[in-house]
Design a protein around this nucleic acid. Sequence first.
DNA 1: TTGTACGCGTTATCAA
DNA 2: TTGATAACGCGTACAA
Lengths: 340, 340
Amino acid sequence: MHAGGVRARPSAPTLEAVAREANVSRATVSRVVNGSPKVSPEVVTAVNAAIAKLNYVPNRAARSLASRTSGAVALVVPEDITRFFGDPYFAAIVQGITRRLDESEYLLNLLVASSDPTHKTMRYLRSGVIDGALVVSHHEGDDLQRVADEALPIVFGGRPSRPGDHIFVDVDNVEGGFIGTQHLTSIGRRRIGTIAGPLDMPAGVDRLEGFRRAMETAGMPADAVENADFTVAGAVSATRRLLDRVPDLDAIFVASDLMATGTLAVLRERGRSVPGHVAVVGFDDSPAATASAIPLTTVHQPSEQMGFEMADLLLRRLSGDADVPRRNIMSTHLVRRASA
Amino acid sequence: MHAGGVRARPSAPTLEAVAREANVSRATVSRVVNGSPKVSPEVVTAVNAAIAKLNYVPNRAARSLASRTSGAVALVVPEDITRFFGDPYFAAIVQGITRRLDESEYLLNLLVASSDPTHKTMRYLRSGVIDGALVVSHHEGDDLQRVADEALPIVFGGRPSRPGDHIFVDVDNVEGGFIGTQHLTSIGRRRIGTIAGPLDMPAGVDRLEGFRRAMETAGMPADAVENADFTVAGAVSATRRLLDRVPDLDAIFVASDLMATGTLAVLRERGRSVPGHVAVVGFDDSPAATASAIPLTTVHQPSEQMGFEMADLLLRRLSGDADVPRRNIMSTHLVRRASA
DNA sequence: TTGTACGCGTTATCAA
DNA sequence: TTGATAACGCGTACAA
């Protein structure tokens, strides 16, 4: 017969309680909990019994206050929820990260910030409940670079906008853009355009630069360029603009597979066959590439592995490893499917 | 000229430091930080100046240790990453949750547990860094129900498997299944089957029950049933089995839109037109319903709003609100599109 | 091998 | 309105 509403939960057992139960001191219980080698076997079993009996779970707040570490890392994604869930690229990254973290004691806190990493997020990062952070989809202008290494070890997924001594995992996006575009020139396409990524992100800028170089190498003009924001909707309107402006286009290099699905939709709506009238090359080699009606030829990047490497770099750094590399540039390659 | 490797970061400023800087006591600084009304304006400005100067951010661990609250809630998803990202339903839920949380001071910690909420997750929930939890896609057999209200206020998205006095937000899935199936009978289909959800989840069981009742009402046999697991791949094989077993099928009620896309793919592969040969009704009204080649007729449930309501119930409970409803059953309705 | 005692950075109680 | 001071639960020298 409790008074409705918030009923008082029994307060959780503490080290102290376990110590009493096992007839030892708090310090000893702490040692057992943390697996210290210098505790006699009998005491260990006694303590463990007490822990089990009381259903004891250490208080993380107290622990991190005392130890000055939290056992958690954050994944910061400066995008809104819709984008985060909409692009399979993020799924792959997160998958890789958790694969690495699962074999450690660290916990992952996902911070899907609004596209502007608010004050709230920055404060959280600096509030001591996080030992380090992984940043994915970082945009120029957010404050994350400032926090990096000043307040917290941070590993970036993708080279940060402003130069600096930051730690990051990336691919050579210029090369990737080059490879994708070159494939289009090599199969005899003559009028090639591109749907580029946002220019406040290095991945956007670099893939465009790769496109330009490939076009230059082939002696063609690199003027059929429209920018989008790595979303389907953005790609749809960009592709429409591009087709309106350059009606005789026979190939498009699109800076992400997700965007490429938008491009394919517009081409169908305009009655242009793929790859007959227009060849399309994407970027990522994400599930979006094979899920589309016309399987995408695309520039593969090892997204899942990149997530893994990001987490690995961070964890090694947190463990005090003196010579952790500060960057890890992974390689890309073309995957031929039906669209080009 | 620092020694390579882990360079020592300057330890963060504390309340103490701010107090010295502003020539007041720690207690006063704490009051200012927490917006206590009983501090003189001059002192407030002085303290704020000191805070700004030192770039002070409160230590959350210390704060929660002292206040016995953490200012964070967890979203627990007992599914693997691939599923979590693969189903737009989750995106909607998360969207709704964050919409509610953003207008509060609470932070969201996403715990995408492996489908078996491990010991690790359960310990985390009970470790004091979380004030409450939201559980989505809870399966029978996971330990979450035990933790609920015993160790932590928990709000479930979807009625929990085992009965109990748990708090949850849901729709009437029996009714939803009925509505979807009834539409198929009402448009004159005679041989109707279903791709049901997993039977260790109430949503799976209930939608199937709704299907059964509608079939009974129409005087048709409810024998064309195959179970799947709310994934595309699962739906694909279930649909193949179903078509092999009941070749004269002219309609299928599928327990989720995501699964329905798999069903559509199989129907196309078998050369059956939709809705000509086979009519299809989905469930959710998620983006998957409109993104598919044939826009899906589907049973709408207000997923985003359900996420919002879940968070709202939890927050109100945490605020000590005495009479928070323990359940919130929202309504479904049919959305007609092209597939049936 | 075990226990004592102090400190981690806040909040909250009690006086002043 | 402000300032001491005692918790909060745990880790860890240091002592025994």
